[in-house]
Amino acid sequence: MKPEWNQWAREFKEQYPGANSALMPLLHRIQAEEGWLSDETIHDVATLFDLPESYVESVASFYSLFFRNQVGKKVVHVCVGLSCALAGSDRLMENLEHRLGIKEGQTTADGEYTLLEAECLAACNQAPVAQVNLRYFEGLDPERADVLLESSKSPEEEVKP
């Protein structure tokens, strides 16, 4: 457990009438630092909340943006909703798979990229769209998948709940 986690947990708990409401904000905060939520993290968070590990796991595993496996420094979510599919999101995904040498759901060997499907990202007027570490890239050309990889050279800003 990192020393600051205890402090964060206390601060989040103070904000809500129910202590467990602070659980997701803390998981967001920790994942922003660590990149993912390891078994050890789940154990530590359970301790901080005086909850069974199974409870914390039940929450962490429910939500698609909490990563229970190690992911790349950049997580690329390609929207595969219908409006994006009509605008070429499947081809965009194929091109990204080819470019990165991995399949959807996988992480590159160098730990740089994880490639994932996203359900409708609510940007259908700009289809096809994708997110890199939750930052939008809109109106993409399915044949120019590199835009997603080049534009994200700088380290992503911190994700704060």
């Binding site: 202590a19 467990n20 409401s21 659980l23 997701m24 904000p25 929450v59 939500y63 909490f66 709940p161």
Partner: peptide
């Protein structure tokens, strides 16, 4: 309050569950 990826939380009672940390 930030959700974490779940369409079902747009259903109001699921949203409240989520907001309560479940």
């Amino acid at each position: 309050y930030r959700g974490a990826g779940a369409y079902i939380c747009g259903e109001e009672s699921a949203l409240l569950e989520s907001l309560e940390g479940r």
